[in-house]
Design a protein around this nucleic acid. Structure first.
Lengths: 211, 211
DNA sequence: CAGATAATCTAGCAACGCTAGTATTTCGCG
DNA sequence: CGCGAAATACTAGCGTTGCTAGATTATCTG
């Protein structure tokens, strides 16, 4: 059985090789430059071996994205030390740092079309953990904190993608982060504590249709 | 000179025909389905005529996006009636309504790679106008209101793209809008205004527009 | 009406994701 | 050790993409 084990190990190594090659090539020239032919050349195999590991190019990108979820979750939970001052800011900064450090991985995770399920039972655990860190950073649980976290996430995501595509200037990222954190801080600039408007968002459900 | 004029007019008509075909096809099957061959077939011309109007497929999409900027600017300025209660909410709702009504145009404007310049001298006037409406909705000018508007825009954009790609559920869009508006409302107003964020002009904004 | 010019089409290139069929290597077993 | 079987990787190719060169047709001018 040792032979089969070695084969299995070598297969796993090649799997990693493909993922690393894809990520490196994407980081160097963007996802459009990641073609099956170039990937095959990088790992010194012919094209079809890729299809013995992955269903196709989209599957390779999804695998890169899954690794990214783990990386992001690690960073966010590390930044989310309960009791520390300004937890919210630390978590938000960690999110933006990740996007800056691994832009193409971020793209695979959150921008490009994907078959990965979000907000469902099949959602990868790492992704759930990352989102949970975001929820926790917003303070103690109250009704509608799920929605609140989604809005915060949207803002962070918007900052990332608009900056990455050059639609908002790279200058001022720090200032924007400060504004965002201030707006979402539970004790400052937020009238929710005094007025408790609508007791959270659940009161009026959406009336628009889905499709 | 009349002959040349007629030719010019016919060329302009064909230009519009191409744009309409591209937008319609994208709305029906997504931008990936918009190929030069299918476009040519739709307008009953051969492929190369497209290249007498546009530099390439990306240029066609940029033209669709430019039209979208005008549409969006019209909607945002219309929603931005100074003095009306809850201007901020109306403008945000108008933004989200536009994204829901014309998802593929929105994609061409703000998601897909583009050579359109943002925040520069070459920025299309309509785009500047749309952003100005956003700035105005945030209240009286003060220092850093440019950054503030960019953060708001990021949040709106994040809500749009994460919903469009299925990364946040379609359910609850109204609640998220309420949260966002509440967070960005200027703090120097009457606290009574914030008592019921779902009330008032909210009902108009989520009526689905024609598709 | 003939020649020049402009407009349009046919045909093709290189590159893409992906796959069928073939060659090669490796394994199990006598 | 040797030989069929099975796993494994490769060559070659299909259909499609964006885009373009060269031939062809239509239009205008002298």
């Amino acid at each position: 059985m040792s032979i089969a084990e070695r084969r299995e190990r070598q297969r796993a190594e090649r799997y990693e090789l493909i993922l690393a090659a894809a990520r490196d090539l994407a980081e160097a020239e963007g996802w459009d430059a990641v073609t099956t032919r170039r990937l095959a050349a990088l790992i010194d195999y012919s094209q079809p071996v890729l299809y013995s590991h992955f269903k196709g190019k989209a599957d390779i990108m999804a695998a890169v994205a899954t690794r990214g979820f783990e990386d992001l979750a690690t960073r966010l939970t590390a930044a989310n030390v309960t009791g520390a001052p300004d937890v919210l800011r630390n978590v938000c900064a960690a999110y933006l740092d990740f996007a800056r450090a691994r832009p193409v991985v971020y793209e695979a995770m959150f921008v490009l079309p994907t078959q990965i399920k979000f907000a469902s039972e099949e959602t990868p655990p790492a992704l759930r953990a990352a989102f949970a860190a975001l929820v926790a950073a917003l303070g103690p649980d109250r009704q509608g904190s799920e929605f609140l976290a989604e809005v915060l996430w949207s803002a962070l995501h918007g900052l990332v993608v608009l900056a990455q595509s050059g639609r908002i200037p790279a200058r001022g990222a720090e200032d924007r982060l400060n504004i965002l954190v201030q707006k979402f801080r539970s004790d400052d600039g937020d009238p929710a504590d005094r007025a408790r408007p609508g007791a959270g968002p659940a009161s009026r459900s959406d009336t628009e249709r889905a499709s």
